[in-house]
Design a protein around this nucleic acid. Structure first.
Length: 903
RNA sequence: GCCCGGGUGGUGAAAUCGGUAGACACACCGGACUUAAAAUCCGGAGCCGCGAGGCGUGCGGGUUCGACUCCCGCUCCGGGCACCA
């Protein structure tokens, strides 16, 4: 054993050992229960970034501990290899996407190996290979025939200059990122997956995922957005509309129906088109509405615009004529593309009505305004204003009647009591919803129904680097799925990408084909699939990546579901929801037995670092890498200034942000590993923050991790022979009669172990790392070798330390386990168990509070009865000093913790 | 705009069911070793105060013998918003 810790030697040797043993290759048999630990696979963007290192370190820690606990562990890895960056790189560097992607995979795989992750590489897959995506196409044709995939128009961002569909990310301030042209909405035919068919199941099944973070489940619940409400039909007014029909809206607040004063429709709604045909101003407005992109965040924050039409619809209860408005905040793809507007009780409608001077008709008395309202006179008590007020029949801006409705108040949107609504007056909101729904149903103008916010999943992409959609168009036969024997539809790999239009649509050799039904000339679909499709089933394919005859086989039944999934919180909704849906679709095709793909979920936080920059006058900020910057501190250690090492001149401290190329604050994992080794990188990442929180990068923190590992190494080197002799004394350690100082050391070790076990269960690995440091501190401070029992205590303590460390820093743990003569390979060493005997204490310290303030402590027998604790507490110096001679009113004893005297 | 998180010393963080706030580290200060430095080791330290003591978990209220923890209101920061992955 070397005296000095050399990470490179240790890590190379350990990795060679694992390779030669094929230590992480796993098969589907044996008595051990299976444990499928999966980290989200990376997009092969070029090289690993720190977020990857964090993700895979967390997954590896869980995997390795599960193995020590006796599970048959599978930890696979692969590549989410289709996507836009490959096309962007192709445009920039004129490299074909396939070549670029495979080169990246090659490089990043080497990096993953160097970090020592316990991955079964025999299961590696890349989604851009025909061997993978052919099964995606195969399933597509099945789901299409079943009706779970269908075709309809969908709205996309259109760049009129580049004649290309843009991703939301490529639209910046309403303009195309390359052309700078104003983006427009355009409707094109697209394929959709009917995820809404599973909406209810996806929602209710969340309740059966106890090991998912509550926050993720809540986000998914809100995303699915189940709401119970009423569909209401407003018949067209024949004289203004010119044809018969009904305008359908959905509302959860049917109790406010009598307060509806207009209706608003989307620019793409049939009524809008009708109005545009005869009214030039409307046509202009509708034309204007196609400007801008489709991202919801933009639509929600843009200025609310609208225009009146001459059209009217008929209120289904009152028979009044309501004006039809066109509003840019109503969207065709959401619900019915129309809303009934109740300005008195909806904040958005209120703002709209005020802007355009529309009628505001209050029909609900908010709960907090009291129950007393006279339905005939409209007089009610407003306790918040300590006034008796007259309820406005119609509130118009500027009139005295409408004072209370001149500004929006949140309580307007609350449930309450119905007024101003004819026969529904006096009802509570919920009663009014029932009564109105019943009346509408009688008239055939509406009914109660459930609606979801969730929309069907549009999967068509007008891009090249993706899985081809296996469909053929024939003049005679229409849309025909590609038959099984013609699969896969292979994506040509040697293609020039220009950024204008879709390359496949310019390749007759790709799209010209014959109809599978009639044999006539036909055209192949040139759209590819959303890359979320590949990542919706890869976890099943890892079980059997080599199967050329089936999508999944019996091995998937052995491994599914994933026991532990680890990945970024940014995937909390889309990827995870699509995967849950896809698994169910596959279940209903008889491909898997499971419904939920991921039993336990751990969502990891981002990796952030400080930023530094310089800003020449009126110029762009130049971001400087933290590695090139030196900081100045005051005498308390606070950072007061920073300078660039190269020129010694000051730079601006920019705050802490997510590591990124644009802010130049990334730390290269490669350089880190080369300098300190994989174990140091892994230890720091685990130690610096709990997995689900953001991790702040710190170079000196890395130094500290390295220093700790050196201390572990040094302890082993100094005490190796002693500990080898201590091994024989291992039997019956609890029975050993240890001197008090050694008993204390042993109590500390087992206390740390017990705590670490608890923390492991919570996935709070940072405190597990702390526990290993505490154990080393205790062992180093132990009274040394004079005492004969020390060898046994040291050997036991150090073996516990190494095993707690093994999942986090596997290489050094592997080397020291052998060097100290412990049994076998630490990879399969049994996880240690804390001894209750070692934790026992005769006397304990209780904190002493007087009136809730800490004033001292008392020493007492661990088993002391309550009466004695009270007596000792009252007799203490602190009690005499702080009770001011007052008698104790009450004494609170919290066993094992504290005594509080109230006086 | 909507949904979901987070805010604790100079810094990263810990505190299991409402019971010692700041474990474990980083940075800092002091000391040992050294011709010197690096490395290593030992010690100190939340803030204010000479001290007794007071004050302290983003801000303002509340519940409680006792609140980082529970409740109400605010604020700032981050993630997601359906074509980034």
């Amino acid at each position: 054993m070397q005296e000095r810790y050399s990470a490179e030697d240790v890590e190379t040797a350990a990795q060679q050992h694992w390779d030669s043993q094929q230590a992480f290759r796993v098969v589907e048999d044996g008595p051990a229960p299976k444990f499928y630990c999966l980290s989200m696979f990376p997009y092969p963007s070029g090289k690993l970034h720190m977020g990857h290192v964090r993700n895979y370190t967390i997954g590896d820690v869980i995997s390795r501990q599960a193995r020590m606990k006796g599970f048959n562990v599978m930890q696979p890895m692969g590549w989410d290899a289709f996507g836009m960056p490959a096309e962007n790189a192709a445009i920039q560097n004129e490299v074909p996407p396939a070549k670029w992607t495979y080169a990246n995979i090659d490089y990043m795989k080497g990096q993953l190996k160097r970090l020592g992750f316990g991955i079964d590489w025999s299961r590696e897959l890349a989604t851009c290979t025909p061997a993978y995506y052919r099964w995606e196409q195969w399933l597509f044709t099945r789901l299409y025939r079943k009706g779970l995939i269908y075709k309809r128009l969908g709205t996309v961002n259109w760049d009129p200059v580049d004649e290309t569909v843009l991703a939301n990310e490529q639209v910046i301030d309403g303009r195309g990122w390359r052309s700078g042209a104003e983006v427009e909405k355009r409707e094109i035919p697209m394929y959709y997956m009917k995820i809404t068919a599973y909406a209810d199941e996806l929602l209710t099944a969340l309740d059966d995922l106890p090991d998912w973070p509550e926050q993720v489940k809540q986000m998914q619940r809100n995303w699915i957005g189940r709401s119970e409400g009423v569909e209401i039909h407003f018949p067209y007014d024949l004289t203004t509309v010119g044809e018969s029909g009904v305008l359908k809206v959905f509302t959860t607040r049917a109790d406010t129906l009598m307060g509806a004063t207009y209706v608003a429709v989307a620019a793409e709604h049939p009524l809008a088109r009708l109005a545009a045909a005869s009214e030039p101003a409307v046509a202009e407005f509708v034309e204007d509405c196609i400007k801008g992109g489709v991202a919801e965040a933009d639509l929600a924050t843009m200025e609310k615009k609208g225009i009146a039409t001459s059209l009217r619809v008929v209120h289904p209860i009152s028979g009044e004529y309501l004006p039809v408005w066109i509003a840019n905040y109503v969207l065709m793809g959401y619900g019915e593309g129309a809303v009934m507007a109740v300005p008195a009780h909806d904040e958005r409608d209120f703002a709209f009505a005020q802007k355009f001077g529309l009628t505001i008709k209050p029909v609900i008395i908010p709960g907090k305004w009291g129950q007393r309202v006279d339905n005939a006179s409209g007089v009610f008590d407003d306790p918040s204003a300590k006034l008796q007020r007259k309820f406005p029949i119609v509130a118009r801006y500027g009139t005295s009647e409408s004072l209370s409705w001149s500004h929006w108040q949140d309580c307007f949107a609350e449930l309450g009591r119905v007024v101003n609504s004819g026969r529904y007056d006096g009802m509570r909101s919920s009663e009014a919803v029932d009564a109105i729904a019943a009346d509408l149903e009688t008239k055939g103008l509406g009914r109660k129904r459930v609606q979801y916010r969730l929309r069907d999943w549009g999967i068509s992409r007008q891009r090249y680097w993706g899985c081809p959609i296996p469909m053929i168009y024939c003049e005679a036969c229409g849309d025909v799925p590609v038959p099984d024997e013609q699969l896969p539809v292979t994506l040509p790999e040697d293609v020039a990408v220009t950024g204008r239009g879709s390359p496949l649509a310019r390749m007759p050799e790709f799209y010209e084909c014959s109809c599978p039904k009639c044999g006539g000339a036909a055209r192949r679909e040139t759209d590819t699939m959303d890359t979320f499709v590949e990542s919706s089933w890869y976890f099943l394919r890892y079980a059997c990546p080599d199967n050329a005859a089936a999508m999944v086989d019996a091995r998937a039944d052995y491994w599914a579901p994933v026991d532990q999934y680890v990945g970024g919180i940014e995937h909390a909704i889309l990827h995870l929801l699509y995967s849950r849906f896809f698994t169910r679709a596959m279940r209903d095709e008889g491909l898997t037995r499971v419904s939920e793909p991921f039993t336990r979920l751990l969502t990891q936080g981002m990796v952030v670092a400080e930023t530094y920059y310089r800003q020449p006058d009126a110029g762009k900020r130049q971001w400087l890498n933290p590695a090139d910057v030196a900081v100045e501190r005051d005498d308390k250690g606070r950072i007061v200034a920073a300078t660039l090492v190269a020129d010694g001149a000051p730079v601006v401290i920019g705050g802490t942000e997510k590591m990124s190329k644009s802010k130049n604050n990334g730390v290269d994992p490669q350089a880190l590993v080369e300098r300190y080794g994989a174990d140091t990188a892994r230890f720091f990442i685990i130690f610096a923050a709990p997995p689900d929180q953001q991790l702040e990068w710190s170079d000196s923190g890395v130094e500290g991790a390295f220093r700790f590992l050196k201390r572990v190494w040094t302890f082993a080197h100094r005490n190796r022979e002693l500990m080898c002799s201590g091994l024989s004394a291992t039997a019956g350690r609890d029975g050993l009669d240890l001197p008090p100082a050694l008993a204390d050391v042993r109590r500390e070790v087992h206390g740390c172990l017990k705590q670490a076990d608890y923390d492991f269960g919570k996935h709070q690995f940072n405190t597990v790392a702390s526990a290993t440091m505490k154990i080393l501190n205790a062992l180093e401070k132990a009274p040394d070798a004079e005492c004969p029992e020390w060898a046994a205590v040291a050997a036991e303590g150090f073996s516990i330390l190494l095993r707690l460390l093994a999942p986090i820093t596997p290489h050094i743990s592997h080397a020291l386990w052998r060097a100290c003569g412990f049994d076998g390979d630490i990879l399969d060493a049994p996880w240690p168990e804390a001894s209750e005997g070692a934790l026992k204490q005769d006397r304990i310290e209780l904190m002493l509070q007087i009136n809730g303030k800490l004033r001292g402590s008392i020493q007492i027998d661990a088993e002391a009865p309550r009466a004695q604790i009270e007596r000792d507490a009252l007799a203490s110096d602190a009690a005499a000093k702080f009770m001011d001679g007052k008698p104790a009113k009450k004494v609170i004893v919290v066993p094992g913790r504290l005594v509080n005297i109230v006086c």
